[in-house]
Amino acid sequence: MNPSSPEGLAQTGEVDTRGAQRTSPSGSVARFLAWTALGLGMMILSAGLAWSIRGGMEPPSPAPESAPVANVVPPPDQKSVLFKKGRLTYQVHCTRCHGPEGRGDGPDAAVLRPPPRDFAARPWTHGETTEAIRTVILQGIPGTAMTGWSHLLSSQELDAVVDYVRSLGAPPREIKVSDTPTTLLRQAGFEPIEPAIAASPLTFEGLDGRKRTLDQEQGKAILLVFWGTTCAPCMEELPSLDRLASEFAHAPLAVLPICIDEADDALVREVERTRTRQLPLLVDRTGLARIQYDVQSIPYAVLIDSEGRQIGRAQGCKDWSTEAVRELLRTVTSRSANSE
Rank of each mutant, 00 (worst) to 15 (best):
L207P: 03
G209S: 06
G209L: 10
R210I: 14
R212D: 02
R212S: 12
R212H: 15
T213K: 14
T213W: 03
L214R: 04
L214M: 05
D215T: 12
Q218P: 12
Q218T: 14
G219P: 11
K220P: 10
A221T: 07
L223M: 09
L223Y: 05
W227N: 06
T229R: 03
C231P: 13
C231A: 03
C234P: 12
E236W: 12
E237K: 06
P239H: 08
P239W: 08
R243W: 04
A245L: 10
E247M: 13
V255K: 08
L256T: 09
L256K: 11
P257A: 00
I260Y: 04
E262M: 12
E262K: 05
E262N: 15
A263C: 02
V271H: 04
R273G: 10
R275C: 03
T276D: 09
T276K: 03
R277E: 14
L279K: 12
P280C: 02
P280G: 01
L281Y: 10
L282H: 11
T286Y: 05
G287C: 04
I291N: 13
I291W: 10
I291K: 14
Q292W: 13
Y293W: 10
Y293I: 08
Y293K: 05
D294W: 02
S297A: 15
A301M: 08
A301W: 04
E307F: 01
Q310C: 07
I311H: 07
A314H: 01
Q315G: 05
G316A: 06
G316M: 01
C317E: 14
W320M: 12
W320Y: 11
S321W: 01
E323K: 15
V325I: 15
R326Y: 11
L328M: 08
R330M: 08
V332C: 04
